[in-house]
Amino acid sequence: MQYLISVIDDGTGLASDEEQAAIDVFNEGLKAGGHWVFAGGLGGPDTGTTIDNRNGAGLITDGPFVETKEYLIGFWIIEAPDLDVALKLAAEGSRACHRKTEVRPFL
């Protein structure tokens, strides 16, 4: 079963060197434990571009689709047998990157 661990930022900005080092250690642990699928960090909302091509108009807008105080800044996709394991890993990840995380199952 796969879970998405979203990393939520509230304007802290990029990870510090210390945070990056802790994230690396956490990632190694994920790989060693067979939980690793994929992970990535994202640019902030102001680097986003919204595209609405539902009607074929290809409307391009500068910025995120909705302005919020908290936003997605990175994620892990992990393999875990159940939510308890996923929550444990998300807690470790939150500590490593010093940000809130949210866990959601892939369907």
Binding site: M1, L83, D84, R104
Partner: peptide, 14 residues
């Protein structure tokens, strides 16, 4: 069901 909250007694440490 969807998030798979497990059906078990938690591990001793929890």
């Amino acid at each position: 069901r969807t998030a798979r909250i497990p059906y078990r007694v938690p591990a001793a440490e929890d």
